[in-house]
Design a protein around this nucleic acid. Structure first.
Length: 343
DNA sequence: TACTCGTGGTC
DNA sequence: TGACCAAGAGT
């Protein structure tokens, strides 16, 4: 009884999380709120529980339901998301909230959820299973790893994905599918970890084929990835009596829709490195940052002057929060600010 | 199919 | 220190 063993383990070891409705609460009739489940699952895409927690609390405090989020201003949501990464998620979050609000509520099935922006196979299954008790199969990185070991799948990812999905489908129970989904993910996060899995305390130690043959730690196999190139560029930090020079980035692409510092040479190949204003620029230093697919070395130039910028917008100091910047710009801002302050 | 798209933690 | 890794989706 594979799923039964795992659910029994989950009942004893489930971790507390702000978006979870615990077994005790559910026993007393409380149902998971689809809005909170959806919001948490989007935030958790490729992101650790520890990183998500505070963002989730801030979002739900400020926008308690999907109608509130749908009414929010774009820039407020983007600023609140700043630092969490993968900013297309925030753009799609708003699109999705507005579509759901217009419909009068979330679709009541996995198939319906799949039609919404930012909701793919994983998130649709997770929301359907957790919020609706639909026996949808949830396959994330944890489930891929657990299945590849349980059934000793030697095919490298990502080619193995369809096979792992089929295997996961054979286990999805009709009873407590939401708890089961979270149980497999908890198992992957705490016991069946990528390196040195704790097989000795695993509820699936007996049926696990990779454990039996000693290959657990080497699975799942993965196709080799391409190396990361290094790009270089420049950003300019200007302080004027009218405020900081900030540039809203294009709606799509890298850091799309976010506040940034005017820059050149790194995110728009071939663009000339032209300062955004005529000012007494001084070199403040370099910032290093690594994105998903490239390393970046950014030269930070600073100036304090009354100037008329050719790009961006002057934001009064009192209205600007560095917290609204993606991390790479936050690093550059902090460096530039300390350079300006010590002048 | 293969790329693009962030960030912080870990070993 | 650097590569790997995390509850993926969009194109």
């Amino acid at each position: 009884m594979l799923t039964g063993d795992l659910l029994a383990w989950y009942d004893r070891h489930a971790r507390e999380m702000p978006w979870r409705t615990g077994p005790a609460a559910r026993a007393s009739g409380e149902q998971p709120d689809p809005y909170r489940v959806w919001l948490s699952e989007v935030m958790l895409q490729q992101t650790t529980v520890a990183a998500v927690r505070d963002y989730f609390l801030r979002f739900t405090l400020r926008w308690p339901d999907v109608a509130a989020l749908a009414s929010a201003r774009d820039e407020d949501v983007m600023a609140e998301w700043a630092g969490l990464g993968y900013y297309a998620r925030a753009r799609n979050l708003l699109k999705c909230a507005r579509e759901v609000a217009a419909r009068g509520g979330f679709p009541g099935s996995r198939d319906g959820l799949l039609t919404l922006p930012g909701i793919g196979p994983y998130t649709a299954s997770a929301v359907a299973a957790i919020a609706y008790d639909e026996p949808a199969t949830v396959v994330d990185g944890n489930v891929e790893r657990v299945m590849s070991r349980l059934f000793e799948v030697e095919t490298p990812l990502p080619a193995a994905k369809p096979e792992l999905v089929r295997l996961a489908e054979t286990l999805t129970p009709a009873l407590r599918p939401g708890d089961y989904a979270q149980a497999v993910m908890d198992l992957g996060a705490t016991i069946c970890t990528p390196r040195s899995p704790a097989c000795g305390i695993c509820p699936w130690i007996d049926p696990c084929r990779a454990r039996a043959s000693g290959t657990a730690a080497s699975l799942p196999r993965k196709a080799p990835k391409a190396g990361k190139p290094t790009r270089e560029g420049t950003v300019w930090l200007l302080r004027t009596p009218r405020g900081w020079l900030i540039e809203r980035r294009a709606a799509k692409g890298l850091l799309g829709g976010m506040n940034g510092l005017p820059g050149d040479g790194w995110d728009r190949p071939g663009a000339p490195e032209t300062a955004p204003a005529d000012a007494p620029w001084a070199f403040a230093g370099e910032v290093r940052h690594t994105f998903t697919h490239f390393h970046l070395i950014l030269r930070v130039m600073t100036a304090e002057a009354e100037a008329n910028p050719t790009r961006g917008e002057l934001i009064p100091t009192a209205e600007f929060s560095p917290d609204s910047l993606p991390t790479v710009f936050r690093k550059a801002f902090d460096l530039g600010l300390s350079a300006l302050s010590s002048r």
